[in-house]
Design a protein around this nucleic acid. Sequence first.
DNA 1: CTCTGTATCCATATAAGTCC
DNA 2: GGACTTATATGGATACAGAG
Length: 208
Amino acid sequence: MTAEQDAELIQQILAGDREQYALLMRKYNTMLYRIGRAYGFTDADTEDIMQETFIQAYMQLHRLRRPRAFQKWLATIMVRMCYQAQHRARLTTSWEQAPASSTFTPNMENSDLKHWLEQAILQLPQAYRIVFVMKELNGYSIRQIAHITGISVINVKVRLFRARQMLRQILTQAQVTDELLAFEAPRCEALADRVMKAIRGAYQQLHV
DNA sequence: CTCTGTATCCATATAAGTCC
DNA sequence: GGACTTATATGGATACAGAG
């Protein structure tokens, strides 16, 4: 789905076809999930923040001036939500306390490899993890990351470079894949359902 | 000393303009 | 239209400075 298609969907949603929003949510669930996890939130907390983000985005959708930039806009909201959540509670998560990585075994089963790679990424300091996940897993440009996170372009570059340096020793065998830190399909559906329910509820309250 | 951010240089990719 | 050149954007890497 391209930015152009996002814009079309947004147009339909604003024209009253609210259900199209579920398509956008399914598309960007994993992207938001990765951001939430990169900020050090637990799996469950990340899901809560994603839900808030999707609802917030829906409510503000009519104010989005450039619908083609929906993805970046959504990520910006997610990052803002993460900051707010961090301020609300200084969370200490299991990730931050993740034990040192086990040694790499090339013939490891796929699921083990995935788990191991995730743990390797999660062991990066948060500042580095965020830019790394946004760049390598979510595919943002350095400029976009700078804009979304509010740090300088130069700083993004250096954090990326250092993050890669830290991971280089252990990430020689595997390519980063779409599966890494993915938001699994059943949960994606469940979250989409909850958000749509919330949106329908809010809509009904406004129009009775 | 370590960590973090900035400045700078270099390489590569892409877009735009010009010429045949 | 295709080939070539130039300008600009982007990303990678390194050196250096300041804070703690």
